[in-house]
């Protein structure tokens, strides 16, 4: 019985962790993808375009070409950054096609 409980807890933890990144991914596609898309206002962008630390520095230095504070809240941006880092170029699962190029 104990091992079942342990398995359930491990599964729940794994699922909740995935949910964070799933939210970040959905936010990324929705918020970022509104402009960054093929034929859009900005070229498509994907997590695998940069390494994780490079993504972090990009936002720390406030280098986005346009002001996005009106499009995405600080908490949402935090989730998106976590998603970008999780699937960055140097991760074990680089995401190259979250937004088709």
């Amino acid at each position: 019985m104990k091992w079942r409980i342990v398995c359930c807890m491990a599964l729940a933890t794994a699922l909740s962790t995935s949910a964070v990144y799933a939210d970040g991914g959905a936010l990324f596609r929705q918020k970022c993808g509104s402009c960054h898309q093929k034929g859009g206002q900005a070229p498509p962008v994907n997590p695998a375009d940069k390494a994780a630390v490079v993504w972090q520095k990009f936002f720390d230095r406030n280098r986005h070409a346009t002001d996005i504070s009106g499009v995405i809240t600080a908490d949402e941006l935090k989730s998106v950054i976590e998603y970008l880092k999780q699937f960055a170029a140097d991760s074990d699962r680089p995401e190259t096609a979250a937004i088709p190029k």
């Binding site: 940069k50 390494a51 994780a52 630390v53 490079v54 280098r63 170029a89 140097d90």
Partner: peptide, 17 residues
């Protein structure tokens, strides 16, 4: 400066990969 940052992004990403 933006161009330099963009270039550094590419180089740093390549290095980390």
């Amino acid at each position: 400066i933006s161009n330099i940052y963009d270039t550094l992004d590419v180089v740093e990403t390549k290095t980390l990969k």
